[in-house]
């Protein structure tokens, strides 16, 4: 197969299923005349009108900024506490029951609580996002640090690798596969919490805007907001995969090497 042929095949593979979905959507909306399911063309138009405007600055960027701030806070707290707990058996014995408890609470149950807390301002929303993201990061970091190889640990002791150097070269790198798994879970939780925290008692943000459209029966606009959220999640996941591939190149390479 020549180069162009291959490129065409690739585009077809990547774009095929989305195109199919849009066609189905088009057919359904034409056939059903359902007011709540506007045609894709109408939604695309609404998308352009709604989001290529000052809304990017007023709603999208603040949402993203809160998401990133909350996520960063959760990463710092989760990895920091996770390393400490993972390294110390005594700390672990003390913290384990509490962690298990928090792990057992299903996140949607927290929505009423979030409604109470999140409205007050940016800070509270950031905290809500952080407090939801921190658990998978924390628990996975503890697991990763606990599973550090003893021989490697002994090697560090023999060759005088201790303190910060040990943290950097042994603990964080050794636990990085689990830490990355935690970070990935936390990212999707963060997006959900970003939206939910803006849906109640808020005056800006993506979640707020979507609810606003819904209440005003601007259905195409509402759909365009959902579409934007989907795209956002997709791009963030893509960026995350690139980061993960860099951080864990040794890990995936080793897996391939063994197979």
């Amino acid at each position: 197969m020549n180069g162009t042929g291959r490129a065409v095949t690739r585009v077809l593979t990547v774009a095929g299923v989305p195109a199919l979905l849009v066609i189905v959507w088009q057919l359904y909306s034409a056939a059903s005349q359902n007011f709540y399911v506007p045609a894709p063309g109408r939604v695309a138009q609404a998308f352009a009108e709604t989001w290529f405007s000052e809304r990017i600055l007023d709603d999208v960027l603040p949402s993203l900024a809160r998401l990133l701030a909350g996520y960063a806070l959760a990463v710092a707290a989760g990895v920091g506490a996770g390393v400490a707990i993972g390294l110390s058996p005594r700390l672990r014995a003390a913290a384990e029951p509490v962690l298990e408890f928090f792990r057992a609470i299903p996140p949607p149950v927290l929505v009423p609580l979030i409604m109470l807390l999140a409205g007050i301002g940016d800070g509270m929303k950031v905290l809500v996002i952080a407090s939801g993201c921190v658990w998978p990061i924390l628990l996975n970091t503890v697991e990763g640090v606990r599973a550090l190889d003893e021989v490697l640990s002994d090697t560090c002791r023999m060759y005088g690798v201790r303190g910060l150097s040990r943290l950097r070269h042994l603990v964080l790198r050794g636990a990085s596969p689990q830490i990355m798994a935690g970070l990935r879970q936390a990212l999707s939780i963060g997006i959900i919490l970003m939206v939910i925290s803006e849906m109640f008692a808020s005056s800006s943000g993506l979640g707020f805007t979507i609810v606003l459209f819904q209440r005003g029966f601007q259905i195409a606009e509402m759909w365009s907001g959902i579409l934007l959220l989907g795209l956002l999640g997709y791009v963030l996941a893509l960026l995350f995969r690139r980061l993960e591939r860099r951080v864990l190149s040794w890990h995936s390479g080793r897996g391939v090497g063994r197979a």
Binding site: V151, D154, M158, H169
Partner: peptide, 16 residues
């Protein structure tokens, strides 16, 4: 003092 461990596969840092 230096040590060479039996488990060579586990005594080297795979990320280095």
């Amino acid at each position: 003092m230096a040590v060479v461990f039996q488990e060579y596969g586990r005594s080297l840092f795979p990320w280095m």
